[in-house]
Amino acid sequence: MESQHLIFSVPGTAVAVAHARHRVVAGICGWGLPVGSSVVETVALVTSELLTNAVQHSGDGPISVAARLKGDTVRVEVSDSSPALPTLSLPTGDDEHGRGLFIVAALAIRHDVETTESGKRCWAEIPVQHEPTPHSPLHVPLPRR
């Protein structure tokens, strides 16, 4: 696949999360990724989780969102002005928050956080899986005895 990218800023508000998620989905679908595919749904969820973290922990400052398709990987980056790095902690069953980084870790092949001159950048990479079409046979190897 040809390298593609999308970069934009949103305000640090909860309303901006849904707007940015829709914008990223529209962008990656414009790159040829099929609407409703598991990779598009995964990118949407990862984008929401990274943005929600930024909104909750960085204040009202602007948040930068980037999505890049390079080879067989979509990379989502969310940058904000807070120097505080997110920490992975184990939420209890009663906690209403705290699962976002677990979701990102479960869905991404790689993820990390980097400090920047103006704050931090959280990123995750999602593989572009070639899903079988209704016309292609599904090959499932069986174990040998």
Rank of each mutant, 00 (worst) to 15 (best):
44 A>T: 04
24 V>P: 07
36 G>I: 08
18 A>V: 07
33 L>G: 09
76 V>T: 02
16 A>P: 05
25 V>H: 05
125 E>R: 03
10 V>D: 12
64 S>F: 00
75 R>T: 15
106 A>I: 00
120 K>M: 04
85 L>A: 15
10 V>K: 10
71 G>T: 03
36 G>M: 06
71 G>Q: 07
96 E>D: 14
115 T>R: 11
120 K>C: 08
55 V>C: 01
57 H>V: 04
19 H>A: 15
130 H>F: 08
70 K>Q: 03
108 A>Y: 00
19 H>F: 14
6 L>F: 14
110 R>G: 07
129 Q>I: 12
77 E>M: 02
4 Q>G: 04
87 T>P: 00
18 A>G: 01
42 T>S: 11
93 G>T: 08
94 D>I: 05
80 D>S: 12
14 A>W: 09
139 H>G: 06
99 R>I: 05
73 T>M: 10
35 V>G: 08
23 R>A: 15
82 S>H: 07
138 L>W: 06
7 I>T: 15
94 D>L: 12
67 A>E: 00
80 D>V: 01
72 D>I: 00
116 T>E: 06
77 E>G: 10
136 S>H: 06
114 E>L: 10
59 G>A: 05
84 A>V: 09
110 R>E: 13
77 E>D: 09
10 V>Y: 11
44 A>N: 06
117 E>M: 08
89 S>K: 13
67 A>N: 00
63 I>E: 02
109 I>G: 05
38 S>C: 13
126 I>N: 01
53 N>R: 10
37 S>V: 12
114 E>H: 09
62 P>F: 02
53 N>Y: 04
124 A>Y: 03
25 V>M: 10
25 V>Q: 12
108 A>D: 00
4 Q>D: 13
127 P>S: 08
42 T>L: 06
99 R>K: 05
106 A>P: 01
66 A>C: 02
10 V>S: 13
48 S>H: 08
131 E>T: 13
15 V>L: 14
91 P>E: 11
121 R>P: 05
119 G>R: 05
72 D>G: 10
60 D>K: 10
13 T>M: 11
58 S>P: 02
28 I>A: 04
15 V>K: 15
71 G>A: 08
145 R>P: 04
64 S>L: 06
115 T>Q: 09
29 C>M: 08
49 E>K: 02
131 E>R: 04
8 F>N: 08
140 V>A: 12
42 T>Q: 07
45 L>S: 10
